[in-house]
Amino acid sequence: MPTLCHAAGTCSMGIHVILEEIGKPYEIRKMDFANQAQYKPDFMAINPKSKVPTLIRDDGSVLTEWPAIAMFLALSNPDKKLVPTDIEGMVRAQEAMAYCTATLHMQGWTRIWRTVTYTEIESEHPKIKARGKEIIDKGIAIFDKQLTGKDWLLGDFSIADCALYFLEVWFVERGNLALPANIAAHYERMKQRPSVQASRKYDGFA
């Protein structure tokens, strides 16, 4: 049975949703980020990057990086149709996932939440956070436009929607920020899915 190393409320929520969409048995290894569990030797022996999501597969091999784990789960469960099979669709899925993870998360939210990792000079923090806010606002506006007239980012539901979903949770539940109209509607659609409801219940967002 695969094991997802997951910390509540982090980007690994999106992978949790994908595992629920697939519906096969899996385990969760709960990571306590407040206690720096990702830097403890037992976890670093599994993933030296000290990051979630981390997926330990049936054969014991470890897979890291959100888009790679998502693509693996989608490709190894083709009957669930979680990623388009044509080149154009697959490339657009990768494009959306990369923007969510490398820009909105790593450039935007990281400035807002982990400001001290940029500088210990506290008087600088408001400006760093403000720049982070600019990045996430611009990014979510781009996705809002992409969703015009569509229920899901790529037309049909896909792993790209699960990447956008963890950002939506951050905006609404953790950042208390309003979402643009198409994104707000997408978030509501996500919350109707049993997979998302299971993840929210597990993480305490229900």
Binding site: E65, A68, M71, F72, L75, Q94, T101, A102, H105
Partner: peptide, 14 residues
């Protein structure tokens, strides 16, 4: 293919 993406995402994102 997945391992290739894993490396790619680590380089780009981190």
């Amino acid at each position: 293919r997945v391992r290739t993406l894993e490396i790619f995402d680590y380089i780009a994102g981190t």
